[in-house]
Design a protein around this nucleic acid. Structure first.
Length: 248
RNA sequence: CCUUGUCU
């Protein structure tokens, strides 16, 4: 029953693995989703050892279970364990490769990530975005741009990754130019540039983007409030706060 | 109904 699976997930996200486990045990025949959600619950609550134990006891592991463990090892800083798990996978899909790419990038192994990227049988837009983001974060802007241009199709995530590469390296004017010539923009694009202005104390630039943004997420509002705080405008911060919709 | 990428 998938209602029970949702319950396991909910308890996991609320930080109560014990309740999640309780629900899991109450299911007469847990399917692979139930197992995977339970493992994810332990991982999200920083209980890697127990997640590992459940994984090893799982009767029919599927590719999602393996992918989750690769990602978990990476997030806990166990890169070599992630690599070993990845190597021993009975089958890999593109998400497996993408998870391993991210693991390598998180640990700073950009060259190894690049090697793996070249071996992916079916690269998807996520694979490309990971590589664009990796290079942009490392400050290899030309390489990132080159990847972006050789990527088939367009992907706003990849463009946003390049944009934040510029802002994170203090290249605000480059960022602005890129923003203006991006083939598509979403609220993350607007947020990225707005946040950069805010952090530089350029309140009016941030405000003008905020006013022109086609859609505002909760993050957009928070960035604007932060822009007010940084430039010592408590009253404007309060005004922005009061204008926030109840939920988005 | 579960796993991978960009903004806080």
């Amino acid at each position: 029953r998938y209602i029970n699976n949702l319950l396991i997930e909910m308890h996991g996200k609320c930080g109560s693995v014990d309740r999640a486990l309780e629900v899991f045990r109450s299911i007469s025949r847990p399917n692979s989703f139930s197992w995977n959600i339970l493992i994810a619950a332990y991982i999200q609550n920083n209980r890697l050892q127990e997640a590992e134990r459940i994984f090893s006891r799982m009767p029919c592991k599927n590719v999602v279970s393996w992918n989750a463990m690769v990602t978990a090892y990476a997030h806990f800083g166990h890169m070599e364990q992630a690599a070993a798990t990845f190597e021993s996978m009975p089958e890999k899909d593109t998400t497996s490769y993408n998870a391993m790419l991210t693991a390598l990038v998180e640990s700073g192994y950009i060259a190894r990530a690049e090697e793996l990227f070249d071996k992916i049988p079916d690269r998807d837009p996520v694979s490309w975005s990971i590589m664009v983001a990796a290079n942009a974060q490392a400050g290899y802007m030309l390489k990132a741009l080159d990847l972006l241009e050789s990527m088939p199709g367009q992907c706003v995530f990849a463009w946003n990754a390049l944009l934040s590469g510029y802002t994170n390296h203090g290249k605000i004017e480059e960022a602005k130019k890129l923003f203006e010539r991006m083939p598509q923009r979403d609220s993350v694009s607007w947020n990225t540039l707005m946040s950069a202005y805010a952090q530089l104390g350029r309140f009016h630039d941030a405000k003008s983007l905020f006013d022109r943004a086609p859609q505002r997420s909760l993050i957009t509002w928070n960035i604007m409030i932060n822009a007010c705080a940084v430039s010592h405008r408590p009253h404007e911060a309060r005004d922005v706060f009061d204008r926030m919709p109840r939920r988005d």
